[in-house]
Amino acid sequence: MKSLIMGNEAVACGALKAGMTFFAAYPITPASEIMHELADREPEIAFVHAEDEIASIHMAIGASLAGRKAMTSTSGPGMSLKQEGIGLAHMMEVPLVVVDVQRVGPSTGMPTLPAQGDILQAAHGSHGDYLPIVLSPASVEECYRYTIEAFNAAEESRSPVILLLDGYLAHLQETVDLDAIPVAVRPRTLAPLGQGRRHFTGLLAKDGVPRTKDTAYYREWYAGMKARMLEAAAHYRFYDYQKNPSSDTLIVAFGITHRVVSHLRESYSLFKPVRMFPVLEDELRAAAAEHAKIVVVEMNDGQYRGEIQKILRREVLGVSVLGGTISLKEIREQLRGL
């Protein structure tokens, strides 16, 4: 049945559809509706309004280890705090979904106008080297669909998967028939705690035994982790490419920004990455090869543009929509000025 729902509600519905049975979070605008939607679902799920952002991600890690699909949600200021848990979950190989509804930062910034400024934080926010899977939906329907896929990717990669929304999309209301969206759900992969004598640690460890001074083993472990992440990510190549044969310019945009620039499809080719990280190298290279100019339109000062430039090894132009207000008119003017 069709109903009018907002992005945040669709995330909650997607999580339930994916089999999430543990949710912990701390209130923060513009992410709180995810919490509200899940607060009254016990005993179907375990719900904790935690004392802080750090507690909520660590509770989700504990619950995931104990056998439940788990999620936490937040916005930029909370995402900064959750980085500690994200690193731990990568090291301990714990499946988990972390939702970040982006707002203008740094710090408290412009509460709570939307932004897309947490792109690099999503990829590199915790210390050390790791390769997260990051998804960015661009509609209410996609919020639902890609929340489920985020859980699938988390199970397959045994890692915390990040779902990036922005304040616009989170509060955007659209008419959607969620039941008509077919998405397969992956079962749990990790055997729950209470099975025996395993040791999970944030230290570099082999078979539960710390190997903290073993450089050769670190390199071996890192190569294995990288291969595992890339192999899992290969099954989640979500993007949309609309080629406009009459245009020599390719616009790359994601999330709400893609929604806005999609009105320019008569004038430009459009590429919407949903899987933001690992960056869709082959797909972007192929699309870029057909165009003289590449422009990334994003609500930050060129964070994703830098990533794409690194991969394409050619000049990539950018339109930065800063300060929380986005308009097609402004983007069109900036595009003309390039």
């Binding site: 543990f22 375990a46 904790v48 660590h58 504990g62 729950p192 705690l193």
Partner: peptide, 21 residues
Amino acid sequence: DSVHATHGRAIPVAEGIKRAN
């Protein structure tokens, strides 16, 4: 079965485990 968590977070990890099972 045991978990060696990050600094200060033993209690929330333990609470997540207990609530989950």
